[in-house]
Amino acid sequence: MEKGKLDSLFKNLQGTFDTEEPAQGHQQRFLEKLEGTHKVVKMDRKRSSWWKPLSIAASVAILLAVGIGLFAPKQSLDERMAKIAPEVSKTQFYFTSLVEEQVKLLESQSTPETQKIIDDTMIQLKKLEDNYTTLEQDLLNGGNSKLILSAMITNFQTRIDLLQDVLNQIDTIKTLKNYNDENYTI
């Protein structure tokens, strides 16, 4: 239709549009008439009302699952290792205490003459500890457990041997220093 015809149509119909709200119970009366003339299933609004509580319950369940996942305490590396190989935790405790004891002894021997060798030893120990952590991860990820356990023990033995060698070198340095001091005359 053209714009002029449309405007004239609306001008002719002006004032005849029904803009009032239907009377109370109009929908119910309409549905009763509809049921009487045709076999129509009555629409019940209560059927769709179960979606709201179900969606709320699902939302709460999802929030709980996410909350538990985020805030649940995670097992430490040592706890996971103890589950996989209980003997590892016992061996680790034993070797760790030996290494710590040797490190304390090494640090107590620190002098200006021995400081460089002690610093180098600490760097090497840090590398061995990092290597051990990698071995632990490999064991947790399901690697060849016998081979990895052997490598872990070898790692600890290497640390202890390194510390023993350095302590022997420090004793040698001290002995040489004392020997030179005794032979030195003023």
Rank of each mutant, 00 (worst) to 15 (best):
E20C: 12
Y132S: 02
K174A: 00
G143V: 02
K174Q: 12
D181L: 14
K83A: 09
A82Q: 14
R29V: 06
I56L: 13
N131C: 04
D18Q: 11
I186E: 15
D138T: 09
K174M: 03
M1Q: 05
T37K: 13
L98P: 02
D138A: 08
A85F: 15
D78F: 08
E182Q: 14
D78M: 07
Q157V: 01
D18V: 07
Q124N: 12
S76R: 13
N12R: 08
L98W: 04
E113M: 11
G142A: 04
S145K: 15
I117K: 07
H38G: 00
D161T: 13
Q102C: 03
G4K: 12
K127A: 06
I153L: 02
V88S: 11
L128W: 12
E21L: 08
S48H: 07
N183M: 11
I68C: 04
I170T: 05
L176C: 04
E182G: 09
M81L: 15
D161G: 14
V103G: 02
I153M: 08
N183Q: 13
S59C: 10
N141D: 13
I186G: 14
E129N: 10
Q28A: 12
L98K: 11
T175P: 06
K74C: 01
E20S: 15
P22S: 01
E101Y: 12
V66R: 10
A23Q: 07
P73Q: 01
T111M: 10
Q24I: 02
V66L: 14
F95P: 05
N178T: 09
K104C: 01
N141I: 01
I117G: 00
R159W: 00
Q75H: 12
S8V: 06
T96G: 12
L63I: 07
S97N: 09
